[in-house]
Design a protein around this nucleic acid. Structure first.
Length: 604
RNA sequence: CGGAUCGUAGCUCAGCUUGGCUAGAGCGCCGCGUUUGGGACGCGGAAGUCGCAGGUUCAAAUCCUGUCGAUCCGACCA
C-alpha cells in the first residue's frame, strides 16, 4: 500500500472533546470520525483493525465448534414479547425502537436471545442435535443514556454474540468452560491482558456469569480481587468480608431510646452520641437504612410496586444491584428501584427522614438486613420517631418488623477475600466480554423445546456469550500507547510494516531500495506500507509513530554504505544491510505473531 | 433525566465583560519557489449565515428569551 493513496489524515492537536487516550489517539491518527453522539465512522485503518479482531474472535469461537450465522438487526416486538423482555427493555429504555410504514413496532437488536432461541426451536428438534452453539458478529444498538469516551461507550457497536443450547446442565458447563478458554485465548492472541471476574447477570438474566475485563485506569468498572487467591469480582457482585467494628465499651446492655435532636446523618448521630455519654461509638456501630420503592409488572403488564427498607452497617454502602436481586427473589422481577421521596419516608417510618430503623413502627413490604450483621451488635438504629435513635440495638432481639438477611453491601478494598480471607484490592477495568449461564429462562418462556432421550419435550438449557469487538479496539489502545501515539500489537495492527524513504524526493538510490523492500515484503504476504509521500522525513516519522505501525524500515543517508534502519515501534534503531531488511522484517512479523499464538496456547 | 460547561474557518482557540469600521490567530488546505533525518520557510490564495429562531437597539458574534446540539459528573451496558 502506498501512503500517498491511503487518505492518511492526522491531526497535530488533540480534539477538544476527547478525554481518554483511545478516543484522542484514534481521532488524531485518523482512525475514527464522529458522525453523531455515540455514532462513529470507522476509517480505513480502524476498519482493518476491527476486521482483524473479528477474524481472531471467529477463529477462536469456531474452535469451540460453534456455528456462525447472521441474524436480523431489526427484530419484531412480538418475538421480544414471547420472552417477556419487551417490557423490561422498554422500562429501562435501552432498546431503540422504530416503526415501519404500517406502524408496526420493531426493536433494533441490543442482543439476540429471542431471535436465536426462536431459531433453535425451529431447527433443533432432538437431543441428538445438542449441544449446538450459534454466533454472529454484527452491529448492535443500545439507546445509551450517555454515550462517552469515543468508541468505548456508543449507541451502535459491533459485538460477537454466541448462544449455546444444551440438553443438560453438565453440557452447558462444558461449553461455558470452552468459551471461557476461548475468550482467554483470543484476548491473548490480540496481545491484551484480560482477566475474568464474577459478575452480576443483569438484564440478560441467568445464574452463573463472568465478565472479561481489560485492566485500564479509565475503566468504568471497579474490580475487587486478590492476586494470590485468584478471586476477582466486580463491585456489583463481590462478596467481601466486612472487617469487624472496633470495640464499643459504653454500649448499653439494653436497647435504649435516646433523644438525638436534629441529627439524622450517621456521622452527625455518632458525633452527638460520642459527646453525650457514649464515647467510642462510631459509624461502624450504626445501622444505616436506605428506603426504596421497587417497581415491576405482573404477567399481564400491570404495574407492581413494593416499599423496601435496606439496612447495612453505618460506614458502608447499600449496593442497588444486590438489593434489586434480593427483592426480585422475594417479590417480583424488579424493573426499577428508586429512593423514596420524603413524604413516602414519613409514611413508612412515621418520622422525618433520617430516623428509620428496623424497630417497631417501620411499615414497609420488604425489610432486608445485611447478612454479615448477623450476631453483630449492639448497634445504633433509627427509632422511627423524629429526633430519636435506639442505642444498644441488637437486631435479633430488638427488631420490630419481619425481616430477611441478604447480601446487600458493596464490597470495598480491605474487605476479606472470600477465598483466602486476606484483604481484597481494587482496580479499574473495561468490560470487553461477558459469559452467562442462562438456563431455561428464554426457551421456557418462548416454549422452544426439543425431544429428549426420554421421548418428552424439554426446553433448551442455554448459555450466552458476548464480546464487544469494537470496544476491544479501544481497550487495546488504552493498553498499548505512549506519548507519541498508538502501539498496536502485531496481530491487530492495521499494517505490520512501513517502509520510509527518507532522502531527497529524487534520490534514486533511496527510493529504489525502499521500493524493492516494499515489494519483497508484499511478496511474502506482509502487510506493508511504502511512504511515497512528498514530505519531510520528520513528518513521516511523526505520522507512523502516531498511527502505531509495529515495524519501521527507513532508507536514508545510510544507503550510500548499503545500510537501512530497522526499528520496532517504541524500540531502538538497528542499522542493517539493505538486503537483510525485508527478510528481517518478515521474520520479526512472524515471530511476533507466533509469540502471541504461544501465549494463547499457554491458556489453561 | 438531574447537575456543570460549551457552541466563532477542516482542527485548536481568541474576540463577548463595556454592542460600533472589512470577524481574527496558529495549525491544516490550494498555487509558486526554496528546503529534505523527528510535525521547515517565503510569497500568494481559498475558506466563517459567529449552532438555530425570535427580541432589544440607529447598530448584535457581543445584551435578553427560547430552542437545538455537544462535552463532562451520576444511574444503564459489550
Amino acid at each position: 500500500m502506498r501512503a500517498s493513496r491511503m487518505n492518511l489524515w492526522t491531526l497535530r492537536e488533540d480534539p477538544a472533546e476527547a478525554e481518554i487516550a483511545s478516543h484522542r489517539l484514534l481521532t488524531r491518527a485518523g482512525y475514527l470520525h464522529k458522525s453523531g453522539a455515540g455514532l462513529y465512522l470507522y476509517g480505513p485503518l480502524l476498519h482493518r483493525v476491527i476486521g482483524k479482531i473479528q477474524a481472531i474472535v471467529s477463529q477462536e469461537i469456531d474452535r469451540t465448534g460453534a456455528l456462525q450465522v447472521t441474524m436480523p438487526i431489526l427484530q419484531e416486538q412480538a418475538v421480544w414479547e414471547r420472552s417477556g423482555r419487551w417490557a423490561t427493555y422498554q422500562a429501562s429504555r435501552t432498546m431503540l425502537t422504530v416503526k415501519d410504514r404500517n406502524d408496526q413496532v420493531f426493536g433494533l437488536a441490543p442482543t439476540a436471545e429471542e431471535v436465536v432461541t426462536d431459531y433453535a426451536g425451529a431447527v433443533v428438534k432432538s437431543y441428538k442435535q445438542l449441544p449446538v452453539t450459534f454466533y454472529q458478529q454484527h452491529t448492535k444498538f443500545r439507546d445509551e443514556i450517555r454515550p462517552r469516551f469515543g468508541l468505548m461507550r456508543v449507541k451502535e457497536f459491533i459485538m460477537m454474540d454466541a448462544y449455546s443450547f444444551h440438553a443438560t446442565a453438565e453440557s452447558l458447563d462444558q461449553t461455558y468452560e470452552a468459551m471461557r478458554v476461548a475468550y482467554h485465548r483470543l484476548f491473548a492472541r490480540m496481545g491484551l491482558q484480560a482477566f475474568a471476574v464474577e459478575a452480576d447477570s443483569g438484564a440478560i438474566g441467568g445464574s452463573g456469569s463472568h465478565e472479561f475485563m481489560v485492566a485500564a485506569a479509565i475503566g468504568e468498572d471497579t474490580i475487587l480481587y486478590h492476586p494470590e487467591s485468584g478471586y476477582g469480582a466486580n463491585r456489583e457482585r463481590a462478596r467481601g468480608g466486612i472487617p469487624a467494628a472496633p470495640a464499643w465499651a459504653t454500649a448499653p446492655a439494653a436497647c435504649t431510646k435516646v433523644l438525638t435532636p436534629k441529627v439524622g446523618a450517621i456521622d452527625e448521630v455518632m458525633g452527638f452520641l460520642t459527646a453525650n455519654g457514649f464515647a467510642g461509638v462510631q459509624a461502624a456501630h450504626g445501622l444505616k437504612c436506605v428506603l426504596f420503592v421497587a417497581g415491576g409488572q405482573d404477567d399481564k403488564g400491570k404495574p407492581l410496586t413494593a416499599t423496601v427498607a435496606a439496612f447495612t452497617r453505618g460506614d458502608r454502602e447499600v449496593n442497588e444491584v444486590k438489593l434489586t436481586n434480593a427483592v426480585t427473589r422475594l417479590m417480583f422481577p424488579v424493573l426499577n428501584l428508586r429512593p423514596m421521596h420524603p413524604d413516602e419516608v414519613r409514611a413508612a417510618t412515621g418520622a422525618e427522614p433520617g430516623f428509620a430503623g428496623p424497630g417497631a413502627g417501620l411499615k414497609v413490604e420488604v425489610c432486608l438486613i445485611e447478612e454479615q450483621l448477623k450476631g453483630v451488635g449492639p448497634l445504633v438504629a433509627g427509632a422511627n420517631e423524629t429526633d430519636h435513635h435506639l442505642v444498644g440495638f441488637v437486631i435479633e432481639r430488638d427488631a420490630g418488623v419481619a425481616y430477611q438477611w441478604a447480601d446487600l453491601t458493596s464490597a470495598a478494598a480491605g474487605d476479606a477475600c472470600p477465598l483466602s480471607g486476606k484483604p481484597l484490592m481494587e482496580r479499574r477495568g473495561i468490560e470487553v466480554g461477558h459469559i452467562f449461564k442462562l438456563g431455561t429462562k428464554y426457551s421456557a418462556s418462548m416454549q422452544c423445546v426439543f425431544t429428549g432421550a426420554d421421548g418428552k419435550l424439554h426446553p433448551f438449557i442455554m448459555g450466552c456469550y458476548g464480546i464487544g469487538s469494537s470496544r476491544v479496539a479501544a481497550a487495546a489502545v488504552e493498553q498499548h500507547h505512549d506519548a507519541d501515539g498508538l502501539r498496536w500489537p502485531m496481530s491487530i495492527a492495521p499494517y505490520q510494516v512501513v517502509v520510509v524513504p527518507a532522502g531527497k524526493p529524487d534520490d534514486a538510490a533511496v527510493n529504489g531500495a525502499a521500493e524493492q523492500i516494499h515489494k519483497d515484503l508484499l511478496a511474502a504476504g506482509i502487510e506493508a506500507i511504502l511512504d511515497d509521500r512528498d514530505a519531510k522525513p520528520g513528518v513521516k516519522f511523526k505520522d507512523w509513530d502516531l498511527v502505531g505501525i509495529p515495524l519501521r524500515i527507513v532508507c536514508g543517508r545510510g544507503i550510500a554504505n548499503g545500510l537501512v534502519e530497522f526499528k520496532p515501534r517504541g524500540g531502538t534503531v538497528a542499522e542493517i544491510p539493505v538486503a537483510e531488511a525485508a527478510p528481517r522484517a518478515i521474520a520479526a512479523v512472524r515471530e511476533a505473531l507466533a509469540a502471541l499464538d504461544a501465549a494463547a496456547d499457554a491458556v489453561r
